[in-house]
Amino acid sequence: MRYFLQRIAFYLFTAWAAVTLNFFIPRLVPGDPVQALISKYQGQLSTKSIQSLYVLFGLDKHQSLWQQYIDYWKQIFHGDLGLSFTFFPAPVSQVIGQALPWTVLLVGITTIISFTLGTGLGVLAGWRRGSWADGLLPVTTFFSSIPYFWLGIIAIYLLAGPDSFFPSSGGFDSELVPAWDQYFIPSAIQHSLLPALTILVSSVSGWILGMRNMMVTVSSEDYITVAHAKGLPERRVALSYAARNALLPSVSGFALALGFIVGGTLLVEIVFSYPGLGFTLLQAVGAKDYPLMQGIFLIITIAVLVANLLADVAYLLLDPRTRKEG
């Protein structure tokens, strides 16, 4: 338990450091967002509206840096991440709020499927090594060695097209309006299939290989021999003794993968022009939209930290050796 509290303290500290960096970096780089916006509107803004823009962006020159820092924290706690210029005057939180579900649903569900499938196959391949299951390995290794964007482009080239069932870009049919209805949902699913498939193909082999190798390692442990000697059913030895122990490293890997759902999918979304957070980040970078970039980085940081915490909790639950008494 003490260990756990230490971890939480560490994560809180990291979160604080990330937010603080997020606050200072834009203030240290030359130029400021308002300057960028002024040049974007090319002299159409009056001095007065420029002044109000500074207030709006929280870059009010009359405040001390400390006061600005305090206000920044207050804003964050209210979910206020400032205004985006690319989508001006939409607030950053709203832009992120629109992009996030796309990413979380596509990559989140795919990551879970990939982990479950890969781990299951890995258990099988590890337990039945030296059988047909070994044939799985070169195939998956081949697919995992192809760079992701290349795989995506090949998939689009081969499978997508005007007459194909698979759309090559976007998150839904552009004639539709996002809504939870019988037109939009199937369209969204249809659009997500190809990106999901490519993510699955490129990520599943990592889980298979990791789990298989752990199964092989664990299979030579004494307690597995004892489990066989005890005359336990094969299934119980394979699952409750071997897989249960082999799973431990994979589970923390899985929690971390969940953390990278938000940040690690840039390529997928770029290749497929998928309206998620990665694609939005690309747009923000292109437009020098600092508030939006900051907001996205903050979300990514928090996601990674939460995932790390999750990994710790999972380990604590699954491995009694990490649970110290007292």
């Binding site: 442990e221 004494d222 307690y223 489990a227 409750s240 249960r244 122990n245 431990l248 491995d319 009694p320």
Partner: peptide, 9 residues
């Protein structure tokens, strides 16, 4: 043999 028991059960 110190590892005859399954560590997770």
């Amino acid at each position: 043999a110190m590892n005859s028991l399954n560590p997770v059960h």
